[in-house]
Design a protein around this nucleic acid. Structure first.
Length: 492
RNA sequence: GUCCCCAUCGUCUAGUCAGGUCCAGGACACCGGCCUUUCACGCCGGCAACACCGGUUCAAAUCCGGUUGGGGACGCCA
């Protein structure tokens, strides 16, 4: 058996969005599972809309996700000659013809058909033009496109889809489609097939929105005398209003880049993405890279479309809650040594990284991450909610300030006093700091919670967090004393 | 309008091909409880679905037909 060859062919007309990422992921998984190759091919034949920024964005997105490829990136425009030759061949073999209908005429006919609620396909005006007529029109300089001549056959053409099963369509339903523009540039339907033939693609995994293209391309494979690859059409991802997700309508929320910037762990995002339209057949939801490659299969891809369940302007979830929960799962269960690099990157970006965290304070760094990670949602939370563990410029949040500090004016003096006590204490241990804090509460004649929560507010700026005395140990005596002494400033 | 695909909790889904073990299981979200000086984590519990109508069958979420609903395609975009 020959090796499987897959491809991911994005068009560089925008950033990589979750639909594209999921397609790339499925192709990648199948290639890796079967020991095959994944080819990255940039389909840039739409020169009007293609941009180099998009290419970079797509590559960057794939790299971030960890989706690697074995060949490419190839650029479709580098093979224009080949595409034109293929069109020429089709013309010669009688599988294609020149069409002189103007855009305006076509547009009018289409609109008229739509208005009359009739079928909107090409009417075949130029399908059987006499050779002389063609010559005359060419001589007159009338621009022409090249259309594929769909064979006049009865019956149906079809293929066995790995996801959907047998898919068929009547020949009579297929319009003569354009394969070369009037400016001589070949179009997607043709280029895509020519490239897939050249790249010896064995499996085409793409969205269900390509189903009608597949039928047309089947004809192209036949006319070009090439073997047809295996097709697998995956379900589309819709928004919660059941509209196809698109860059244009949904903006950055559907961009892979958005998740990178918002502190997702790349693998967690892949794990979320793969579950949108595929399941292993049991209750399992978390997979390591190797486990997913092992478990993944085309046959278990769902037939029905799934919904990317984000609510715009949801105060609680900035994207699909399921995606966040999967990220949280990885955040709190992955080995600290694997989490650390992600946090390091984020801290570095905010100029909070200290080289010692990777050297003599490495253990401290890891212990701290262990202490605080259970209540975080993303990597970004380490520099926002968790800022007080790495810097002094953390923000004192409004809510705890009012509720746990300003409400008890006595704290203005109690906390600095406790700071002195801590400074003078023989041991700055878990037990001792707690004992002294409780003693402080006793002397002030308040509940220990008042002292503890007040301290939490001053020392971390947060309403909630890990056990107070664990925090104290993590921060260290000097920092704690310094911060507690500044308590009066917060009453100003 | 034509063609194609799809249809289980709010969402992601298991179960459908080989009908009975499914008055439908898991996860997220939500609600309640336990734990806890706080908040999370964790644990326990709860809410919540087979779109509808017929047919086949001793038996249908599962097979068949229809209806409805949703989506996609119909471009000199990819």
């Amino acid at each position: 058996m020959t090796e499987s060859r897959l491809r991911f062919p994005p068009s560089p007309t925008g950033y990589l969005h979750i639909g594209g990422a999921r397609t790339a992921l499925y192709n990648w998984l199948y290639a890796r599972k079967t020991g095959g190759k994944l080819i990255l091919r940039i389909e840039d034949t739409d020169t009007e809309r293609s941009t180099t920024d998009s290419i970079e964005g797509i590559l960057d997105g794939l790299n971030w996700l960890g989706i690697d490829w074995d060949e490419g990136p190839y650029f479709q425009t580098d093979f224009s000659e080949e595409h034109r030759n293929a069109a020429e061949t089709l013309l010669k073999t009688g599988n294609a013809y020149k069409c002189f209908c103007s855009r305006e005429t076509l547009e009018q006919k289409r609109e008229a058909a739509l208005a009359a609620k009739e079928s909107v396909g090409y009417d075949g005006t130029c399908r059987s033009l006499a050779p002389e007529t063609v010559q005359q029109k060419e001589a007159a300089g009338i621009p022409a496109v090249i259309r594929f001549k769909v064979p006049e056959r009865s019956g149906k053409i079809g293929y066995d889809d790995k996801v959907l099963g047998r898919i068929e369509s009547s020949y009579s339903e297929i319009d003569d489609f354009v394969i070369v523009r009037s400016d001589g540039n070949p179009l997607y339907l043709l280029c895509n097939v020519v490239d897939d033939i050249r790249d010896r693609i064995s499996h085409v995994i793409r969205g269900q929105d390509h189903m009608t293209n597949t039928i047309k391309q089947l004809l192209l494979y036949e006319a070009l005398g090439a073997p047809v690859p295996v097709f697998a059409h995956m379900p589309l991802t819709l928004d919660n209003k059941k509209a196809k997700i698109s860059k244009r309508n949904h903006g950055e929320i559907v961009a892979v880049q958005f998740y990178k910037e918002h502190g997702f762990i790349p693998w967690a995002f892949n794990n979320y993405l793969v579950l949108l339209g595929w399941s292993p057949g049991n209750d399992r939801e978390f997979f390591s890279r190797e486990e997913l490659i092992e478990t993944f299969s085309l046959e278990r891809i769902n037939r029905s479309s799934s919904i990317f369940n984000y609510r715009k302007d949801d105060p609680k979830f900035f994207t699909d809650p399921k995606a966040i929960s999967i990220n949280e799962h990885y955040l709190r269960s992955m080995p600290i040594s694997e989490l650390a690099p992600f946090v390091k990157e984020r801290l570095s970006k905010e100029a909070l990284w200290d080289e010692s965290y990777g050297q003599e304070r490495r253990q401290w760094f890891h212990d701290t991450l262990e202490l605080i990670r259970s209540r975080f949602h993303t990597i970004n939370d380490f520099t926002s909610l968790g800022r007080a563990y790495f810097a002094d410029d953390y923000e004192i949040e409004e809510k705890p300030l009012k509720k746990n500090l300003l409400k008890y004016p006595g704290l203005k003096t109690w906390l600095p006093e406790l700071a002195e006590t801590y400074k003078a204490a023989e041991h700055f241990s878990l037990e001792e700091t707690e004992r002294l804090a409780r003693k402080c509460a006793e002397e002030a004649d308040v509940k220990p919670g008042v002292i503890i929560n007040g301290m939490r507010t001053v020392v971390t700026g947060q309403l909630a967090g890990p056990s107070m005395f664990d925090i104290l140990m993590t921060l260290g005596r000097d920092t704690v004393v310094r911060r507690l002494k500044k308590t009066p400033e917060l009453f100003a």
